[in-house]
Design a protein around this nucleic acid. Structure first.
Lengths: 168, 168
DNA sequence: TAATAATGTTAGTTCCTTCTAACTTTTAAG
DNA sequence: CTTAAAAGTTAGAAGGAACTAACATTATTA
């Protein structure tokens, strides 16, 4: 049974920082202000400021002039954001076939906007499309790609439709 | 040929106001500060403030103590936001089957996060699902609903898969 | 080890959006 | 037509997130 975590109030910006911090930690082990600053295109002073806020909320530990650590609570929050982010990217690139650049940018914004319910549905949707017995793209998705390109339904597609109403 | 409109820089908040203003106008003809205030759960003074900003950007016309009007530019922007909003709602409710309440809230946030490219894909995707010859839900969508509920692929679904690899 | 470079912090500013409280204008009643 | 209610405005404050500029600390290296 999942414990119903009361969600901590996080601003978009805080969520962003958390996601980036955990990414850096995963990649380089230790996280410094300058890393965050570079990755996020903000000045180091902005990082210090937000770290202060996050520390007050018990999400990071940050001693002056030292490395940045996530608390367990912070790590949970960070992984949450990251999961939303990656599910959105997958949906955009693999189902809608949005180009990777745009998908990334969109996900960066949408990750803060999506409810748990929608997140779950989206996740399942991707799962439904991907983890199939044959592990190939379902026909309907190919048809959508075709429809998007041409504005027309593929013949196959129409056929399938018509078979259902042979009397018509 | 579409003229490539350079998008005016709008904050989330401004987009919100524009969408609400056009909705009010559509419903009641004349738009007053108090209407916007009520609809958006903000104080009238906040409305006055934002209207000032929007006026400076040439999106609304607002003479003191008088009705609020959208300029053509403002109206275009407003319809843009509204379109994003409604496409998102449709996608969430009709394809992912997110409940209407949540879908609405999510759309209110996502509408500011979605790029033109993603918007277009999403729109086409809905079109692809809805405007079908038979006008009924495609099988795969029913299968997804089933998969979401049960975690299992429907028999039908597996069958279809297997038919493709009769030799296996 | 002393000096310099790299990092990090602080203080003060700006912009955005909201608020409250006091005030003004418009409208609707009596 | 005067007055009270409703609607709208102004000014000032606050919170969030960024910035600059000056200062402090840590690390590097000559």
């Amino acid at each position: 049974m999942k414990k119903d975590k009361k969600p901590i109030e996080l601003t978009r910006s805080m969520e962003d920082y958390l996601r980036r911090i955990i990414a850096l930690k995963e990649k380089k082990g230790a996280v410094q202000v300058k890393d965050i600053s570079r990755l996020m295109n903000v000045k180091p002073s902005s990082v210090t400021a937000i770290l202060d806020t996050l520390a007050k909320k018990g999400l990071v530990i940050h001693e002056r002039y030292s490395y940045v650590e996530l608390t367990p609570k912070g790590e949970r929050a960070a992984r949450d954001v990251e999961k939303r982010h990656s599910v959105l990217i997958k949906f955009l690139t693999e189902i809608l076939e949005v180009d990777p650049e745009t998908a990334k940018k969109d996900s960066c914004r949408m990750e803060h906007a999506i409810s748990p319910q929608t997140f779950k549905k989206l996740m399942k949707f991707i799962e439904f499309v991907e983890n199939r017995p044959t592990h190939e793209k379902p026909e309907w998705l190919k048809s959508f790609a075709y429809y998007f390109k041409t504005g027309e339904r593929s013949e196959e597609c129409k056929m399938r439709e018509l078979k259902k109403k042979p009397e018509a």
